[in-house]
Design a protein around this nucleic acid. Structure first.
Lengths: 104, 104
DNA sequence: TAAAAATACTCCATAGGTATTTTAT
DNA sequence: ATAAAATACCTATGGAGTATTTTTA
C-alpha cells in the first residue's frame, strides 16, 4: 500500500468512478491508474469498487470505509508538505531579514 | 514522499536516533534507511534530524512536527489494513457459516 | 578501537508509459 | 459507434542489498 495508490483511489471516486477522467486529473494515464487500483485491491485482498462488467458504478461498503481513511492519510501527507513549505518560507524570511539587517 | 519513508523516519526516532537499530526493527539495512531518510529530507527541503557530525542526536523543531503527522498517516494506513483483514475475516466467517448451513 | 553513518556499486522489481483488445452504452 | 476498462508489452527509475569508507565516541 502506497500513498500514491490511496491518492489514485480517491481520484477515481472523486471523478465519479471514471478512471479515464481521474487519470487526467492526476496527470497520468488510464492504464497506470487501472493497474495501481488493481494492485491496491490485491494487496488488501478486498474489492473496493463495484463493477458491472468493466464499468465502475460505486464503492463497496468496505471501499467506502477505506476511502475515509485514505482521505485522512492524504490529509496528513498534505499537512507535512504544507509544514515543509511554510518552514522554508520562514527560513527564507529570516535570510531576507538578515540581509536587510546587514544592508542597513 | 512515501508511506515507507514516513515509517522509516518514525522507526529511527523510536530507535533513539540510531539508524542501525531502526533498520533491524523494520527488517531492512542501515544504508537503505539512510538513503530513504535523505530522500525524504530532500523532498521536503527540510532537515528533520539534528546531526553532530554523522551522529544523530534528535529531531529539529520542524522534524518534531513532521513526525506527529507521519504517525497519524501511518495510523490511517494501519486502520485500512486492519479493516481489510477484518473484512476478509467476515467473508470467511460467512463462507464458513454457509458451509455449516449447507452441511446441516 | 568499536560502532555508527555515509558512500559507491550493483541488481532486480516495478511504476508508468504506448499500443491494443475487450466490453458496455 | 463511442467511450471506457483491461491487458500486453517495454523501458527507465529507484528501492534495497553488499561491500567499503569515513567518522565519532
Amino acid at each position: 500500500m502506497t500513498l500514491n495508490q490511496l491518492r489514485i483511489l480517491v481520484a477515481i471516486v472523486d471523478a465519479g468512478y471514471n478512471i479515464t477522467h481521474a487519470a487526467e486529473r492526476v496527470h497520468a494515464t488510464q492504464p497506470g491508474l487501472s493497474k495501481q487500483l488493481k494492485q491496491l485491491e490485491e494487496y488488501l485482498g478486498l474489492v473496493l469498487l463495484v463493477r458491472r462488467g468493466k464499468s465502475l458504478t460505486g464503492l463497496t461498503p468496505a471501499g467506502e470505509r477505506v476511502v475515509v481513511h485514505a482521505r485522512n492519510a492524504l490529509a496528513e501527507a498534505r499537512a507535512i508538505r504544507a509544514l515543509a513549505n511554510a518552514e522554508r518560507g520562514v527560513e527564507r524570511g529570516l535570510r531576507i531579514a538578515a540581509l536587510h539587517a546587514q544592508a542597513s
